[in-house]
């Protein structure tokens, strides 16, 4: 079923909307949740919560892109749940990905109190705009979805080595851009 039709079902308060959303995007939701949450039960509950939230938010919301809208909610709720459980696991995927991204910051840099996440976000978007489609997608998959290298390689049809190299180059570009902006994290 097309997204537009699913959204119409939500507006009609027809529970088929949830069925169709699950049918079309349930696996994606679970996959994203899996990237952040270790426990199977947490993932199940998170996706359940997300579907309820979707039901409550549409209408009045009418997302242009249902898949992105849903993915953002899943990611957000997964992170919230992780925070709530104090579950930034040492060595876990989220931390590995985070540490990797932080490596774009020059050594010795101090994290200042005046850090503005929105400002850093704008620089990241500027970086993404300058990249090719595949590089951009790889960056988003890795750092926004917290995806594993193996899975990114599988999805893009590339080797793991190529993905690692691509990410390293992108991080270097990010480091240069941050430096030019005089950005102190």
């Amino acid at each position: 079923m097309k997204d537009e039709k699913i959204i119409e079902l939500f507006f009609a308060r027809d529970e088929e909307a949830i069925k169709e959303t699950e049918k079309k995007y349930g696996a994606l939701c679970h996959h994203i949740a899996e990237n952040f949450l270790c426990m199977h039960e947490d993932r199940e509950e998170c996706v359940n919560d997300v579907m309820l939230e979707l039901w409550n938010s549409i209408p009045p919301a009418r997302p242009d892109d249902l898949r992105s809208y849903l993915a953002e909610i899943v990611r957000c709720r997964s992170i919230d749940r992780t925070r709530a459980n104090n579950a930034w696991k040492r060595g876990g995927n989220v931390q590995i990905v985070g540490d990797e991204l932080l490596s774009a910051i020059p050594d010795g840099t101090e994290l200042s109190e005046s850090y503005e996440s929105t400002r850093a976000g704008a620089i990241i978007n500027e970086l993404l705009a300058s990249l090719g489609k595949e590089e951009r997608a790889v960056f988003v998959m890795r750092y926004w979805m917290s995806e594993s290298i193996r899975e990114i390689a599988r999805r893009t049809g590339s080797s793991e080595g190529k993905i690692k190299m691509m990410l390293m180059r992108t991080r270097k570009k990010l480091a240069v851009m941050l430096g030019k902006e005089g950005f102190t994290l």
Binding site: D65, R67, S68, A71, E72, C76, I79, R83, W88, V94, Q95, V97, G98, D99, L101, L102, L111, Y115, S117, T118, A120, G121, A122, I124, N125, L128, K133, R136, A137, V138, V140, M141, Y143, W144, M145, L185
Partner: peptide, 22 residues
């Protein structure tokens, strides 16, 4: 490390069109 939630928030601002693309 990524325990600093502010960096995570920076990634939150990635443009929706890039997310959709990925």
């Amino acid at each position: 490390g990524f325990e600093d939630k502010r960096l995570l928030e920076a990634v939150d601002h990635i443009d929706k069109k890039y997310i959709s693309e990925a």
